[in-house]
Write a protein that binds this DNA or RNA. Structure first.
Length: 774
DNA sequence: TGCAAACCTG
DNA sequence: CAGGTTTGCA
C-alpha cells in the first residue's frame, strides 16, 4: 500500500511550491457579489501585460513583493490568487502561459480594435460634447426650470417646451452616455472612465441635474462599489504593484481615488516601498495621465460654469473638451505606437533578475526574489545571497540528513551495528521495508509546513539508526562552500584524496546577463504562438514554480521575429535566414542539434516553433534534468513549446536525457565507490566521514560536478529535490557496491528503478521558451 | 519483433 | 554529445 511510488506520488508536490491553482479561485468581483459586466474587457489589454505586476501572470510574485507594502508582502499568496483569478477571468481553466498567449492575441486584436476605436473615440468626443452641452444647458436652464420654474410661475411657454426637449435630450444623453461608457470601457478600461463619469455626474448631481442623471449615478455607484470592492481586494495590489511604473493608468486611477481624500501629487511616493524600477518604461506617465487631464479640464470647465450665456460657455466647453479629447486620442494613439515600437533592448529595460538562494526546489522555502535589479546590482545581491546561502545550506543539510539512510559501513569493519544491511533490496520497490528503521526520521523535527511539502520524501530511504546525532557538516564547510568544495574523500582520509582531482574553484556566480522582466518577456512571448501551450495536460498545470523569469539572454528564438530588428539587426537576419532554411534547405530529417548547432542556428517555422534544437534547448533540457531524469516524450513536447517535434528531434532529446542520466549515474557510482574505498580504509571512528561522503550537499564536490554539468553557467538554483535524489542515488550505489551486488551485470537496474520514481513535476517556467532562471 | 534504455566508443 | 550496439521487456 505505502509503496514508495505511492508515497512519492502523494507527495510529488514537495517541489511544487505554491500553485495558485491550489487556492480557491474566487474572483474579486465574485466576492463583491457583482458579476462583471458582459462587455467588460479584461482591462488594458495592450498595456496590460506591462502593467500587470506579473505581466499578466501570477508567477511574478516575488519581484512584486519588492514593491509591495509590508502587509502586501504578507499576502503575496492572496496576490497570486488574485492574479490567478484574473487569469481565470480571462480564460477560465487556462494557466498563465495560455492566458498570456490568449491575452496577447487579445491585445493584438485590441490594437486593431482600438484603431477603430479612434474613430469611435472621435465619435465619442462629439457625443460627449453634445452630452456635456446638454447637461450644462440642463443645469443652467433646467435647474432654473425646476426650481425657478416653480418660483417664476407662469414662465414662458417656450421655456416649458425647452424643458420638455431638455428632458428628452437628457434621456437621450443618458442612453448615449451609457453607450459611450461601454465604448470607453472597451477602449480604455472601464475603471478609468467610471471614475471620470462618476465624478462628472456627481458634480452635475450637486448642481441639481435631472432624474436621469440620478439614475445614472445610482448605476455608477453600484459600479463604483464594485470597483471599490475590487480595489480593496485586488485593486490594492494593482495599485501597489503598478507603482513599478512611474504612472500607470491604474496608478492615476487609484491616485485619483485617493485624491478625493488628500491632495494629488506625490504620485511617485507609492513606489518608495521597495525596489523601484526606475525608468523601466520611460514615458509611461505620458500615456496615462490623460484621465487626470481630462478630468482636470472638465473640472476647470465646471468651475467656470457661470451664469453667463450657456451658448458662450458651451462654445468654450466645446473647445476645451474638443482639445482635451483630442489630446486623449493623441495619447492613446501614442500609447499604441509606443507599444508597437516598444524596444526592450533599451538600457533601461535591461533588467536582471536573480532569485535569492531560496533553497532550490522551486523556492518553496520562501526565497526572497531580487527582482528588478539592474545589472550593477546583480553581483551585489549575489553576494548577499552567498551570505544568506549558508543558512539555507544549513537547512538543506538538516534535510539531507533526513534524506536517506546511511548505508551500512564496511562489512568487515568492527561496527556490528551498521554492518551490511543493504540500502535497498533491488527486488523490493519499497525501500522503506528494506531499510532498518529503528527510530524516527532525523528530520522529524523539521515539521514540514505542509504535508505535501514534506521535506522528507516518503519514498526516500529513511535514515538508519545512528548511534550519534545527525552529522552536520562542520561550519567551515557550510559557510564557505567556495573554499571547501567538499571533496568526498577530504573529510577524514588522506589516503584517497588523490582519487579525484582537486576541484577547480566553484563556478562563478551567475553572470549578470541582461534578463528581461517577466512582463516584458510576456510582451514578447505573446507575440509568439505556442500552440502546444494550450494543450498542456491539466494535471501539469497545477504545478507552478517560483521561477517566474526566463532567461532570454541566449535564447535564439526569443524575442519573436517582429521584434528582433529592434533588438539586434543581426538577430533579425539570423532568424530570417532560419526561415529560408526552413523553407527548403533543411528537411525534417536534417536536424542535428547539440554541437552541430553550436552556432545557435535557428530553424524557425512560421508558427514560431523551431525545427532544430539549439544550444539553448540543450541548456534547458539540462536544467530540466534537475527535476526529471526520465522525461516522457510528451513531457518534452510540453516543455519545449518552441520546438517543432518530429521523430528525430524527439529521439535526440531523449538521447540527451539518456546522456544526462549516464553522466549522473557515472558520477554516482564513482563517488559511491570512492566512499566505499574510504570506508574500507578508515578506522571505526570515522563514520562521520562516511556520512559526509554519502551526502550531496551544495558544498560537496559531487554537487559541484553535477552543477557544472547540468547548470554550467550556474544561473539556475539547483532544486533541493535534485540534491535529495542525488543523495538517494549515491547511497543506493554505495549500498550496492558495499554489498557486492555490483558483481551482478545488471546491478544498476534496481537503482535506476528507484531513481526513475523520484522524478518531480517541472516548474511551469519550463513551459515557456527560453531557459528558466531560478 | 519493436522499442526504449543502457552501454560503448569516438 | 552522438552514433552504434546490446539488452531487456512487452
Amino acid at each position: 500500500m505505502d509503496s514508495p511510488t505511492d508515497l512519492f506520488e502523494d507527495s510529488a508536490p514537495p517541489i511544487h511550491t505554491f500553485a495558485p491553482s491550489d487556492l480557491p479561485r474566487v474572483h474579486p468581483q465574485a466576492r463583491a457579489g457583482c458579476p462583471a459586466p458582459a462587455f467588460r474587457p479584461p482591462g488594458f489589454p495592450l498595456i496590460h501585460h506591462l502593467l500587470q505586476p506579473g505581466g499578466g501572470t501570477r508567477r511574478i510574485g516575488p519581484p512584486l513583493n519588492t514593491n509591495l507594502s509590508s502587509h502586501r508582502q504578507l499576502e503575496d499568496r492572496h496576490l497570486e490568487e488574485d492574479e490567478g483569478e484574473r487569469d481565470g477571468q480571462v480564460e477560465p481553466g487556462m494557466d498563465g502561459e495560455d492566458e498570456g498567449v490568449i491575452e496577447g492575441e487579445d491585445s493584438l486584436l485590441g490594437v486593431k480594435k482600438r484603431h477603430n476605436d479612434v474613430t469611435l473615440t472621435a465619435e465619442w468626443s462629439q457625443d460627449i460634447l453634445k452630452v456635456k452641452r446638454m447637461k450644462l444647458e440642463g443645469r443652467e436652464r433646467g435647474g432654473e426650470a425646476e426650481e425657478g420654474g416653480k418660483r417664476r410661475e407662469g414662465g414662458r411657454q417656450g421655456r416649458r417646451r425647452e424643458r420638455e426637449e431638455l428632458k428628452e435630450q437628457l434621456e437621450e444623453a443618458r442612453e448615449r452616455l451609457q453607450a459611450l461608457q461601454e465604448k470607453v470601457w472597451r477602449a480604455f478600461g472601464e475603471k478609468h472612465l467610471a471614475e471620470e463619469e462618476k465624478k462628472r455626474k456627481r458634480r452635475n448631481g450637486h448642481s441639481g441635474v435631472g432624474e436621469g442623471d440620478l439614475a445614472i449615478m445610482e448605476e455608477e455607484d453600484i459600479t463604483d462599489e464594485m470597483y471599490d470592492e475590487e480595489d480593496i481586494d485586488s485593486g490594492e495590489i494593482e495599485k501597489e504593484s503598478f507603482s513599478l511604473l512611474s504612472a500607470s493608468p491604474f496608478d492615476s486611477f487609484h491616485k485619483r481615488k485617493e485624491d478625493l481624500q488628500k491632495d494629488k501629487g506625490g504620485r511617485m511616493e507609492r513606489g518608495g516601498g521597495g525596489l523601484r524600477l526606475e525608468g523601466m518604461i520611460e514615458g509611461s506617465g505620458l500615456w496615462f495621465d490623460c484621465g487626470g487631464l481630462v478630468r482636470g479640464d472638465w473640472d476647470g470647465a465646471i468651475e467656470d460654469e457661470g451664469e453667463e450665456g450657456g451658448q458662450k460657455f458651451a462654445q468654450a466647453l466645446k473647445l476645451e473638451l474638443g482639445s482635451a479629447v483630442a489630446r486623449v486620442i493623441d495619447r492613446v494613439l501614442r500609447l499604441y505606437t509606443e507599444m508597437t515600437d516598444f524596444t526592450p533592448s533599451s538600457p533601461n529595460a535591461t533588467i536582471s533578475f536573480l532569485p535569492s538562494d531560496s533553497g532550490g526546489d522551486g523556492g518553496k522555502e520562501g526565497g526572497v526574489w531580487m527582482g528588478l535589479l539592474t545589472r550593477g546590482r546583480v553581483g551585489e545581491m549575489r553576494g548577499k545571497e552567498e551570505k544568506t546561502g549558508g543558512q539555507d545550506r544549513e537547512k538543506g543539510k538538516q534535510k539531507m540528513n533526513s534524506v536517506g539512510p546511511l548505508p551500512p559501513g564496511p562489512p568487515h569493519r568492527s561496527e556490528p551495528s551498521d554492518l551490511p544491511i543493504p540500502l535497498a533490496v533491488q527486488k523490493s520497490p519499497d525501500t522503506r521495508k528494506t531499510y532498518p528503521l529503528l527510530g524516527p526520521p532525523l528530520s522529524a523535527h523539521l515539521n514540514p509546513p505542509h504535508p505535501n511539502l514534506s521535506l522528507h520524501h516518503p519514498s526516500l530511504p529513511r535514515p538508519p539508526p545512528l548511534s550519534h546525532p545527525p552529522i552536520l557538516t562542520p561550519p567551515s564547510q557550510t559557510k564557505d562552500p567556495s573554499s571547501s568544495s567538499f571533496h568526498p574523500s577530504s573529510s577524514s582520509s588522506t589516503s584517497s584524496s588523490t582519487s579525484f582531482p582537486v576541484p577547480p574553484p566553484p563556478p562563478p556566480p551567475p553572470l549578470p546577463l541582461p534578463l528581461l522582466h517577466y512582463s516584458m518577456q510576456q510582451l514578447f512571448s505573446r507575440s509568439l504562438h505556442h500552440p502546444q501551450l494550450s494543450h498542456l495536460p491539466p494535471s501539469r498545470k497545477d504545478y507552478l514554480s517560483s521561477d517566474p523569469f526566463l532567461e532570454f539572454s541566449s535564447h535564439p528564438s526569443f524575442p519573436p521575429l517582429p521584434l528582433l530588428g529592434h533588438l539586434d539587426p543581426s538577430l533579425g537576419r539570423h532568424a530570417h535566414g532560419g526561415r529560408e532554411r526552413d523553407r527548403g534547405m533543411r528537411g525534417d530529417g536534417g536536424i542535428r542539434g547539440g554541437g552541430g548547432m553550436d552556432g545557435g542556428e535557428l530553424y524557425l517555422t512560421a508558427g514560431g516553433t523551431q525545427e532544430g534544437l539549439s544550444p539553448c534547448h540543450l541548456k534547458k533540457a539540462k536544467l530540466m534534468f534537475f527535476y526529471t531524469r526520465y522525461p516522457s516524450s510528451n513531457t518534452l513536447k510540453t516543455y519545449f513549446p518552441d520546438v517543432k517535434f518530429n521523430r528525430c528531434v524527439t529521439s535526440q532529446m531523449i538521447k540527451w536525457f539518456s546522456n544526462f542520466r549516464e553522466f549522473f549515474y557515472i558520477q554516482m557510482e564513482r563517488f559511491a565507490r570512492q566512499a566505499v574505498r574510504e570506508a574500507l580504509t578508515r578506522d571505526g571512528a570515522s563514520r562521520l566521514g562516511r556520512e559526509s561522503q554519502l551526502r550531496v550537499g551544495r558544498d560537496t564536490e559531487l554537487f559541484r560536478i553535477l552543477n557544472m554539468h547540468y547548470n554550467k553557467s550556474n544561473i539556475y538554483q539547483v532544486p533541493e529535490r535534485f540534491i535529495e535524489v542525488s543523495e538517494v542515488a549515491l547511497r543506493e550505489f554505495y549500498s550496492a557496491i558495499w554489498t557486492g551486488r555490483d558483481s551482478d551485470p545488471c546491478w544498476k537496474k534496481g537503482i535506476y528503478k528507484i531513481i526513475c520514481k523520484l522524478d518531480s513535476p517541472l516548474p511551469d517556467a519550463f513551459r515557456l521558451p527560453g531557459c528558466p532562471v531560478g
